[in-house]
């Protein structure tokens, strides 16, 4: 603030509207500089994001033939995809996956952040250990999980079937289509909660301690302090995390596909449709477009109605 006042004091008489030697005003020159600075990023975004998105939309109107000419088919791909039961199954799987993994990761992150905000011995060490799942390479943790859940040799069945008898038979939890989605959800929560934890913890550390002291003087219990001070303070960061997590998990491919290969969330279904079997790139593009529309719709709704930005 002070620096700003100082700067404006140095401006020549007439301020920013004064014409300089090349005939442009200072404001115009700054505008130009601004454009020059953002131009490389804009160009990269246009080339790497906007172009593929537009090309993808274009492809969705074609029957794509890799070794010959593609044929324009209008809305045929869209009609076929929307009439396909597998698409609706994939959408349902995606909604289950995204909803549970997002809520789970956020709640676990919030809980962990609250605990890690308290003082206890070796807190620094524990804080960094918690980040491990988030920073470990996905392929290596996926293999350990697969081994963990192996129905014949895995530790999980050894403990819960052989030792504890919680299951009536050995089950391939990570392979069977009925249970694999839940393993994928638990995996996602475990892998991604440290991100929520990190964000919330940094917000928690910035809360003015005077608020808590004042509340204590007024006789507020721990529950009240959490509800009326902590929660409102972290409200925005939690919502931002939820929004980001939904976007990321909605498009999540590698975690799901590498772990189980048979949880058909939309991204995996799109891949299978476009690149395996009869390799229908047109329908694959259509699926990607629908995924994009659904996601944009959700973001607009969430930002306007829930976060109320």
């Amino acid at each position: 603030m002070h620096a700003q006042i100082k700067n404006t004091g140095k401006l020549p008489p007439g301020g920013s509207a004064t014409a300089l030697t090349d005939g442009r005003t200072r404001a115009q020159r700054e505008e130009l500089l601004g454009w020059a600075l953002v131009l490389p990023s804009v160009a990269i975004i246009l080339a790497l994001i906007l172009y593929p998105v537009l090309y993808n939309i274009y492809l969705s109107f074609y029957q794509v033939n890799l070794s010959g000419a593609s044929r324009f088919v209008g809305f045929l791909n869209h009609r076929e995809v929307l009439g396909d039961r597998e698409f609706w199954n994939a959408l349902l799987t995606t909604i289950i996956y995204v909803a549970f993994s997002t809520v789970g990761a956020t709640l676990l992150g919030l809980g962990t952040a609250l605990v890690m905000n308290e003082k206890f011995p070796l807190r620094g060490l524990v804080r960094s250990l918690i980040l491990l799942p988030y920073v470990a390479p996905v392929i290596s943790v996926v293999f350990s999980w697969q081994f963990f859940f192996d129905p014949v040799n895995g530790i999980f069945m050894d403990i819960f079937y052989d030792k504890l008898g919680w299951f009536s038979q050995r089950i391939n939890l990570i392979g069977s289509p009925a249970t694999a989605v839940w393993v994928a959800i638990i995996f996602s929560i475990w892998k991604n909660f440290p991100f929520a934890y990190l964000m919330i913890l940094s917000r928690l550390q910035a809360i003015d301690q005077n608020l808590y002291e004042a509340a204590e003087i007024d006789g507020a219990a721990g529950r009240h302090k959490f509800l009326y001070i902590t929660l409102p303070e972290v409200y925005f960061v939690v919502n931002a995390i939820i929004l980001l997590r939904v976007i990321w998990n909605f498009n999540k491919f590698e975690e799901v596909y590498l772990l189980t290969s048979n949880v058909k969330v939309l991204s995996v279904y799109t891949y299978l449709k476009a690149f395996t079997g009869a390799m229908d790139l047109g329908q694959g593009a259509t699926l990607a477009v629908l995924q994009f529309i659904l996601l944009i719709g959700f973001i607009l709704f969430y930002v306007k109605r829930v976060i109320k930005w």
Binding site: P151, V152, N153, Q169, I171, N172, G175, S176
Partner: peptide, 18 residues
């Protein structure tokens, strides 16, 4: 078969006498 979807990797169960 051993539980769940399987592929050739499960031949290891044979080598283990299972």
């Amino acid at each position: 078969n051993p539980p769940g979807p399987q592929t050739w990797r499960a031949r290891d169960y044979y080598l283990q006498g299972k």
